[in-house]
């Protein structure tokens, strides 16, 4: 099940914990993967670990021109981009009253606007191929909100609205567009939490533990698969029951 042999996938934010695991999952299902991110070194390390069928495609998502060119570079390296996973994201947390325009704009730019640009560029080839999978990594806070994260939550909710609208536009061409919305996942970001914060978070998670990057990757693999062809415009919540929506 979930055989991606012959398919090509571009994953942004592949230098991070979740992105790397997504790339591993797609790769082990047989896909050729394009690893994008800002930091080249972890991308090279991951590519070396994966071996064949892995291409390093560095890209700064806050640079519009670089974003515009990324899909083209993916096509040059892999022949096509059949599967696009918009996983890259940044945070610039702060209370509204103390949040600068710059902190707002940079999060919206990298998380939401780059998703739009990459989708726009990727859909062209997918329409011609009459097949495509776009998986956008949103977040639980896009649905529930989270104090201190108006910019991040807005960008993640925006990804859901974008995905549903795009899904409606391209469904007739065999292209699906879905979101995966992680809850608390063990990554470098959550490693920084202290014990008290950790306990507080886990108190709100019925599963009683944080999720793993592999559990996010599994959800992405499903949505990227041939088998998920009738699933579009939906959001798959992977949060241990933290929010049942």
């Amino acid at each position: 099940m979930f055989d991606l042999t012959g398919k090509t996938a571009l994953v942004t934010g592949a230098s991070g914990g979740i992105g790397a695991e997504i790339a591993r999952a797609l790769h082990s299902a047989g896909a050729t993967v394009g690893l994008s991110g800002t930091r080249v070194e972890p991308l090279e390390t991951l590519a070396a670990e994966l071996g064949e069928r892995a291409h390093v495609l560095p890209c700064n998502l806050s640079d519009a021109a670089e974003v515009e060119g990324l899909i083209k570079r993916g096509v040059e390296a892999m022949g096509a981009v059949d599967i696009l996973v918009n996983n890259a994201g940044i945070t610039r947390d702060g209370l509204v009253m103390r949040m600068s325009d710059e902190d707002w704009a940079s999060v919206i730019d990298v998380n939401l606007t780059s998703t739009f640009r990459l989708c726009r560029a990727a859909v062209r080839g997918m329409m011609k191929a009459r097949w495509g999978r776009i998986v956008n990594i949103s977040s639980i806070v896009g649905q529930t909100g989270n104090g201190g994260q108006v910019n991040y939550a807005a960008s993640k909710a925006g990804m859901v609205g974008l995905s549903k609208s795009l899904a409606a536009e391209v469904a007739s061409r065999g292209i699906t567009v879905n979101c995966v919305a992680p809850g608390f996942i063990e990554t470098a970001m959550t490693d920084k939490l202290n014990e008290a914060q950790r306990a507080g978070i886990l108190g709100s998670v019925p599963a009683g533990r944080m999720g793993t990057p592999a559990e996010i990757a599994a959800a992405v693999l499903f949505l990227a698969s041939q088998e998920a062809g009738y699933v579009t415009g939906s959001t798959l919540h992977v949060n241990g029951g933290m929010a049942m929506i």
């Binding site: 062209r124 329409m127 011609k128 536009e169 391209v170 007739s172 061409r173």
Partner: peptide
């Protein structure tokens, strides 16, 4: 053609 076809044609 549908509306998406016309966009594809133009492109």
């Amino acid at each position: 053609a549908d509306s998406l076809d016309t966009v594809e044609l133009v492109m």
